Simulated scan of single mutants.
Amino acid sequence: MRIVLAAPIALGLALAACGETGSADADGDGVISAEEMTAAVADREPMQPGNYQLSMEVLELEDPESSPEELQQARAFFEMMGSMAPPQCMTEEDLNGGMMDIAESMQNGDCEVTSMNSAGSNMNAEMSCQSDGGGTATVTVDSTQTATSSEMTMTAVEAAEGGERRLSMRIGMERTGDCS
């Protein structure tokens, strides 16, 4: 797939931690700045530090420019990455400030957050990301967070010759205990 995936996935994980009520676009300019994202997460219930297990599931994978074999290889790669990830010790900084550092770096890179809304433990966002070929991919993120888990569905769509490229994934983090 030619969709730029690393930046949207990292930003999606950062956004999955958000939890303020309403739109994060405080100044109404149509772009969510790093500062607005930081303000949006200020009142959320924090996730507890500890060991977290990552899971990843490919829900949809389409690319009119790729063969069925290439799509199957890409699907297998993403699913292998999700199943092989060892539990990771996440500190309070990793779960809060560290995630916002990722979001801020993405804002200065290939993606721009164009909308972000949250209420309670639910959040949704939309980003516009530059793709490898100079086009633009639209990335949507829907997530739910508790003190010990986070689940996000991320969908990236990009125009392609003969149709559109689509990747939809479910990414989860589940606390498995204290760090050792």
Rank of each mutant, 00 (worst) to 15 (best):
T176C: 03
R165G: 06
A14Y: 00
E151G: 03
G120C: 01
D63I: 00
Q145D: 04
S150N: 13
D94V: 07
E35L: 13
D132M: 12
M154F: 00
M152D: 08
S83M: 11
T138P: 03
S66I: 05
A40Y: 11
A156P: 01
T148G: 08
R44F: 07
M100Y: 00
I171N: 04
A147Q: 13
G163A: 03
A137K: 07
S105A: 15
M116K: 12
P64F: 05
A34G: 10
E20M: 12
V139K: 00
A39Q: 14
E104N: 12
C89K: 01
I171M: 13
S115D: 14
A159K: 10
G97V: 07
T176R: 07
L167P: 07
V139M: 04
E93N: 12
P86K: 06
M37F: 12
G19Y: 07
V31H: 11
T153K: 11
Q130C: 00
V58R: 06
A24S: 10
E57R: 15
D178L: 09
P87A: 00
G133V: 02
L167V: 14
V141L: 06
E70S: 09
V58W: 10
L71M: 06
M37A: 15
V141Y: 04
E158D: 08
T144Q: 13
S118N: 04
F77T: 15
Q145F: 01
T155G: 05
A159S: 14
S143Y: 05
M154E: 07
M169E: 11
M127S: 09
M80K: 15
E126N: 13
N108Q: 15
C179Y: 02
V41Y: 00
L59W: 02
S23G: 13
D25G: 12
G177I: 01
T146C: 09
Q88L: 13
V157C: 01
T136S: 11
G109K: 09
A24V: 07
G172C: 09
G163K: 08
G134V: 09
A10V: 04
G98I: 06
G30Y: 01
P64G: 06
P46V: 04
G97P: 02
L54T: 14
A74V: 12
